[in-house]
Simulated assay, not measured.
Amino acid sequence: MGLEIISRVLPGIGVCQEVPLHGGRRVGIVTRRNGQREIVVYDEDGDGAAATVSLNEDEANVVAELLGAPQLMVRLADLQRQADDVVTEQLPLSAESPYDGRALGDTQARTRTGASIVAVLRHGTTHPSPGPEFTLHAGDLIVSVGTREGLDHLARLLDGSG
């Protein structure tokens, strides 16, 4: 990626993670000990805050979603371009799926198909790296990586036809 994230402990406050921007300025994310987060844009000298925005948990999650989800898809697409035999696909989970309402681990997807489920998209929210206890629901988009054959097998597994 090329950017170095600088982490600093803020005694009695929390942690600040700063990222240098292309124009020489910096932006930081302060995570307070109480869980509150703030976005800090430093002034041009880098000595003080030019602007600060406080975020509650829901707002922080939405901002993370807006910044993170597209990047996940870009990285997966880059991976696909780098390796012709690796395919990335979003597979819908229908209401007729035998896995609607069941834990992801029940699918045994990786063992049975060789494909990996790397995220689940649900109602505009990305759930990256879902664990085996993650419950699947009709309407989910299952972000998967594998060979064409493996993803075809996974699609059949999820829809109950194979």
Rank of each mutant, 00 (worst) to 15 (best):
S116M: 13
L141P: 00
R148H: 05
P130S: 11
L154S: 02
I142M: 09
A138E: 13
G124H: 03
G146C: 11
D140P: 09
I142W: 08
A115G: 11
E149H: 11
S129F: 11
L136F: 06
D159F: 02
H123S: 14
L158S: 07
F134S: 09
G160V: 06
G139K: 04
T135F: 14
I142L: 12
R112M: 05
H137S: 14
T125Q: 15
P128H: 06
L151I: 11
H153G: 11
S129K: 10
G150M: 02
G160S: 08
P132K: 05
V145R: 06
R156M: 12
L151F: 08
I117G: 11
V118T: 10
E149N: 09
V118Y: 05
R112D: 09
L121K: 06
H137L: 13
V120A: 01
S129H: 07
I142S: 07
P128T: 07
D159T: 05
E133L: 05
H123F: 10
L136D: 05
H153F: 13
L157M: 08
R122I: 10
L151Y: 05
V143H: 08
G139N: 07
G131S: 03
D140T: 07
G150H: 04
G131I: 00
T125E: 15
P128Q: 08
V120W: 01
T125G: 12
V120Q: 01
P130Y: 12
T147N: 02
R156D: 14
V145C: 00
T125F: 15
S129L: 14
L136P: 06
L154V: 01
V145Y: 09
A119P: 05
T113H: 12
T113K: 13
V118E: 07
V118G: 04
A155E: 10
H123A: 15
S129Q: 12
G150E: 04
D159Y: 07
V118M: 08
H137I: 01
R156K: 15
R112K: 15
T126Y: 02
R122W: 08
A155Q: 12
T147L: 03
F134W: 14
L121M: 14
I142E: 04
V118S: 04
T135H: 13
R122P: 09
P130H: 12
D140E: 03
D140F: 03
L151H: 09
F134V: 13
D140G: 00
G160P: 09
E149W: 01
R112W: 09
T135V: 15
R122Y: 08
G114L: 07
T125M: 15
P132T: 06
I117C: 11
P132C: 01
S144G: 06
P128W: 07
V118C: 04
R148S: 14
